[in-house]
Computed example of a mutant assay.
Amino acid sequence: MFIKDENYFKIKEFERNNITAFFTRKSFFERNTLKDLLPKNKIFISAYQKHTDVVKDISKTENRDYFEGVDGFITKRDDVVLVTKHADCLPIFFYDKKEKVIGMVHSGWKGSFQEIGLKTLNLMEKNYNSLRKNIIIGLGIGISCEKYEVGDEFYENFKSKFSYEIIKKSFKSYDGRKHFDNCEFNKLNFISNGILKKNIIVSKECTFEGDFFSFRRDKNKERNYAVIYFNKKSLVI
């Protein structure tokens, strides 16, 4: 469950495992900067995102804190903070409650089409022996289906790649125009690829309508931040 706070929306299920996971609100930046929210003794990991499907493992041997052309991170390190930037694109939070791995991904329609979420799971499996039954995923906050109008070519591209069941539930029609539900698409794609439905937390907030920066609405460079990090040794639930 996403819980509203003065500065951000945090994910309750992650908090129970001593994982801080949150998405900033627009009003927060009227008074503060992101670093005001972050622990002073941790390394701030971020990237110049390019709507890719590239996910970086911040391993013990990694000594950089900024990456170009990367749209997601995973790590077991408790000395780092993973950060991605969003303005309607979907943030995806990951936590393997057994192997103690966290992840953070920026998934706009390009990332979703390229299945950056599944590539994150694959990397967690490859590098840390994660099992999908043990992974909790938080989806949101992004633009809602009602505010995300798309064209016929967009629809046909997704239709040619993904199953009928996923497409049927991910696209809706409003006043004869097609709209895309990025959150629902990722939820269904995760479930069809081994993530337990009970382990997926979904936000009902919308960046276009809520207290968030929205590129479709504002047409500027302001961004919301999605953040995840270990508080201390986490517990299995």
Rank of each mutant, 00 (worst) to 15 (best):
N41Q: 13
G138M: 05
A87E: 04
E184G: 03
D181I: 07
N231V: 05
L34P: 05
S163P: 11
Y225R: 04
I136P: 00
G176M: 11
E149T: 14
L38N: 06
K232L: 09
K100F: 06
N186P: 06
Y95H: 12
K178W: 01
R64N: 15
L235R: 12
I43P: 00
V236C: 07
V101F: 00
D78W: 01
N122S: 15
G72Q: 02
K133R: 14
F180Q: 07
D88F: 08
K233P: 02
E156D: 11
V81T: 09
K161D: 12
L82N: 06
M124L: 14
D79K: 03
H179E: 11
A21N: 08
Y229L: 05
N18I: 13
I191H: 00
Y174R: 09
D71R: 04
K42L: 05
E153N: 06
L131R: 09
L34G: 10
F190P: 00
E99C: 08
E149Y: 00
P39M: 04
N231E: 13
T61S: 07
K126D: 14
K12C: 04
I143C: 09
K159N: 12
F22H: 02
S27Y: 05
G140P: 03
G138A: 09
I74N: 11
T20A: 08
N224C: 11
I102V: 15
C145F: 01
Y128S: 05
K126L: 13
G103I: 07
I3N: 04
G151H: 06
R216N: 14
K26M: 13
K50D: 14
G103W: 03
Y229W: 03
K26F: 10
F2K: 03
D79C: 07
Y164T: 15
K159Q: 10
K169I: 10
N231F: 00
K50R: 13
F113G: 04
F215Y: 13
Y225D: 07
R25D: 02
T24P: 00
Y155W: 00
M1T: 15
N18W: 00
V54H: 04
F185W: 01
L118K: 10
G117K: 00
N18P: 05
N127E: 15
M1K: 10
L34A: 12
C89I: 09
F185L: 08
I200D: 02
D88W: 03
N129A: 10
I58W: 04
Y95D: 14
M124N: 12
P39H: 00
G142A: 15
D181M: 04
F171A: 07
T120V: 07
L235A: 14
